[in-house]
Structure formats: C-alpha cells, structure tokens
Amino acid sequence: MHRIGFIVPRRFQMMSLAALTVFEIANMPPAGQCYDVHVLSEHGGPVESSGGMKLETEAFGDPTFDTVIVGSITEMKMPSSDATTISFVKDSANASRRIASICSGAFVLAEAGLLDGRRATMHWAHASEFRARFPKVVAEEDRIFINDGPIWTSAGMTAGIDLALALLDSDLGPDAAKMVARLLVMNQRRLGGQKQHSALLDMTPKSDRIELVIAHIRRNLRNPLTVEELADVANLSPRQFSRAFQAETGQSPGKAVEQLRLEAARFMIEQGRHTINVVAQETGFMDRERMRRAFVRTFGVPADVLRRNARREPVAGN
C-alpha cells in the first residue's frame, strides 16, 4: 500500500486535485487498494478553494508517507508560505520516499530549500518570479514535469495528471499507468521532457477545411506534404489555400508543417525508442542532417543533445 499525503494550501485550486483521480482509479478492481490517500492542511477541517468550494482535510501530523504532494493556488503573485507548512514539508521530505508539487506548489518546495541545486519546473507564467526568488534552483519552465532524484515538480494543473501517471508507472508499472490513462480518456501520455507549449496552440483555424488540413498533416508527417496536396485536401487552389491558411493560423503551410514535424520528432527523440535516422524518416525530415538543422534553428541544439539530456533524467524517484 502506497500512502499519499496531499497538502492543500489556503485558497487552493480545485483543478490541482485532478492528480488524485489517478490514484483513485488505480484503486479500482482488479488491482484493488494500492493507494491510501490523505488530504492534509495546517489545522485540518474544511479548507476553502479559490472558487469558494470547501474540502475536508486532516491536520498535519505524522510526516511519514510514501509520497507527499503539494497542491497549487491560482495567484499570479505568489505569497510566502506559512512557517508551519514549510516545517511540515521539510519533515516530510526527510521522512518520506519522495515529494512532489503541482504547478505553483514548486514555490513551497523551494521555500523549504528542497530544490536548491536541483532541476525543477513550474507553470510558465510563474517562471520569471520563481527564478528571481530562488536563484539556486535550476528552473526549466519549458517542461511538463521533472523528476530530480526523490523530488518531482510539474507545470500547470493538467500536468499534475501527467506527473501522477508517472508516479503510478514507477510504483505499479507501465501497464497500470496505461490502464488509468485509458479510463481518463487521455489520447496521449505526456512525458516529462515534453514542452508545456504545443505547436497546435499556435494554429486555431476558423473553418473546417483548414482543420481538416491540419489533421491531414499530423497523420501524414512522413510524406512530402506539398502545398498542392494540402490544397487538394482543402478543395482550394494552391494560391487560395495558402492565403486562407495564413489568414486562419497566422503562419504559412510550410512553417506549420515544420513545426508539427519538430514537435513529433522531439517527442520521439525524448521517448528514446527509435534511432535518430528513424525519427527523421518517420517525421518527414527524410535525413538526419536536415532534421539537425531544423532542431538547431528552433531549439538551439541538435536532436542527439536532446536525447542525451532526456536519458540523464531519472524516470523514477529514489
């Protein structure tokens, strides 16, 4: 049985509780009771969320858990944590196997001194303030979650679900994590090394025909994907299509294809299941050198450097 302590801060964000759903589903048959979850606060009793709803909690007590997770609040300017919470977090880090944070919960771990000299992530909107307040932390805001030894940090609220799935994977194995992801109707488990920002967020087409083109690109990245082919999908002439695509997405078809190829290639690179040459072929770059130039132009480093960095990231807490 894995004992989980989830710390609820004052005016917590309800969405940060979504991570607990992962452990709740993992307890369903046939697996049985794998996790014992305790929702904690300084004094116990009801704690009001930022949206006005109240959650019943247990008071801080024995700091010994398998995993302690610090929840998040929605303030854009992060307040300092109270001394009792900081003390409990420190004690928990010493007594428990691992400790984690969701979104702005990273500020609490940093205030407790647990992140000094370690890599950590947080929501991109908090990154500037976090760097200024905690210069000893190696802040990497362009990550979904990061595991540095026994300490895990995640980006926004939904990234807390990805972090919880990674914890579950570490505890019970990939099959259990896949089962929970399926029950949550997640079409993709995001790895920690993935970027918080998706290229698809830059493309918000207003018409079905351009939406169909983007879906066609994603399904056929390994193909040449000429403007003429994409124009046929949209049932427009190449000139009409190029104008419509630029107007609706803010970028040219060629730029959109490259961005989607880069995103897919980076995901495959960080997964580490395929060689660089295979990744280049499968994502339409065709050859390693062409992909290398695109990676350097966009990410500042070639693909093999990203792979080495991903391999250095631990995949399970100590």
Rank of each mutant, 00 (worst) to 15 (best):
A280E: 07
R219W: 02
S104D: 09
L183K: 09
I161D: 00
G300S: 08
R209D: 13
L212A: 14
A112E: 07
E42Y: 02
R97C: 04
Q188R: 15
N27P: 06
V68K: 05
I269F: 00
G284C: 08
L184N: 04
R98F: 02
L20A: 01
L306M: 15
T283W: 09
M53K: 06
R297M: 05
E211Q: 12
I146G: 01
G113V: 04
L40W: 06
P9I: 00
R292I: 08
R209N: 11
Q33C: 05
D162N: 09
T57W: 07
S80R: 15
A120L: 13
Q240D: 12
R261L: 10
Q194W: 14
L230F: 12
D82R: 10
M268V: 00
C34M: 11
E282H: 13
M15Q: 10
I146H: 02
P63M: 08
L191K: 12
A95T: 02
V8W: 03
F245D: 03
R182G: 13
M186Q: 12
K255N: 06
N318E: 15
V39H: 06
L109I: 11
I99V: 14
H274F: 15
A280C: 11
I161M: 02
G272S: 09
R312G: 02
R131A: 13
P238F: 03
S50F: 05
R222W: 04
I210V: 15
D36R: 12
F134V: 07
I99C: 07
F12V: 01
R10D: 14
V89F: 00
E258Q: 13
R97A: 11
L55C: 10
T153Q: 08
R143K: 15
I4G: 08
E228Y: 03
V70T: 06
R10W: 04
R293C: 09
R218A: 10
A159Y: 00
Q271F: 01
E270M: 11
D36I: 05
P150M: 05
V68G: 02
E289C: 04
S198G: 14
T74M: 10
D304L: 09
P224G: 06
L163V: 01
M14A: 15
A231T: 08
D66W: 03
S72Y: 01
S16P: 06
R219Q: 14
T64S: 13
E140C: 11
G105A: 13
R219L: 12
R266I: 00
R239H: 04
R273N: 13
D82S: 11
I269K: 03
R119A: 15
T158I: 08
P302Q: 07
I144P: 01
I7A: 01
K178S: 09
S80A: 14
S50H: 05
S237K: 08
D287W: 02
F267M: 02
M76Q: 11
T121Q: 10
T121D: 10
E56P: 01
Q259C: 00
E229G: 03
C34K: 13
F134T: 02
M76N: 08
L109K: 06
L200C: 08
V47F: 07
M203Y: 12
V89R: 00
Q240L: 01
A159F: 00
G173P: 08
R97F: 03
A127L: 14
T249K: 02
G61Y: 07
T153R: 03
V39G: 05
A139N: 10
A294R: 14
L260T: 09
N187D: 15
L262E: 11
N235K: 11
G317S: 14
A181T: 09
A26Q: 03
L168K: 06
C103Y: 10
E282L: 10
S242G: 02
